[in-house]
């Protein structure tokens, strides 16, 4: 892949922070970001994150509602614990954890989402390129 076209995939709950998405799945507010929405962040599998990284994503942003306020009661807690390795299934050992960011933001916190993900993308640039797998 050429450097110019690095993509960050966002896996997000449709009830969490409001993110604009265009027809092609891109988020116009954050250059390079592509978004997939889920009914609940608890549906996100560690496998999906790994698939995105393996498929050439520069990073993955996982986003759910504020911890404590899941519409389905526990979904965001579940994926958070899975990411931290406290609840099975967890991520494989070799997964580059520096390329994953999890955000827990309520519907009105759009600005926070944009600034956090921009900052994340900036740090990604300084990381060594993901090893080819």
């Amino acid at each position: 892949m050429s450097d110019a076209q690095k993509t960050v995939i966002t896996l997000i709950c449709e009830r969490a922070v409001e993110v604009n998405v265009d027809g092609g799945g891109a988020c116009p507010d954050v250059p390079g970001m592509k978004v997939i929405k889920f009914p609940c962040s608890g549906m996100i599998q560690p496998l999906m994150i790994e698939a995105a990284l393996k498929g050439g994503a520069e990073g993955v942003v996982v986003c759910g509602c504020q911890i404590g306020d899941c519409y389905y009661r526990e979904g965001n807690r579940m994926i958070r614990e899975r990411l931290l390795g406290d609840r099975p299934p967890t991520m494989k050992k070799g997964t580059d954890r520096r390329r994953i960011l999890a955000l827990w933001l309520a519907r009105p916190q759009k600005d926070r989402f944009i600034s956090e993900s921009k900052e994340f993308i900036a740090t990604l640039g300084s990381l060594a390129a993901p090893e080819a797998k």
């Binding site: 110019a4 076209q5 690095k6 993509t7 995939i9 092609g24 799945g25 390079g32 592509k34 997939i36 889920f38 009914p39 549906m43 599998q45 496998l47 999906m48 698939a51 995105a52 498929g55 050439g56 994503a57």
Partner: peptide
């Protein structure tokens, strides 16, 4: 929204020109 579809979508998004 089967997970196969999610994975296909991830792939498609990554392949589409960024």
């Amino acid at each position: 929204l089967p997970d196969a579809e999610v994975n296909a979508k991830i792939k498609a998004l990554l392949e589409a020109k960024g």
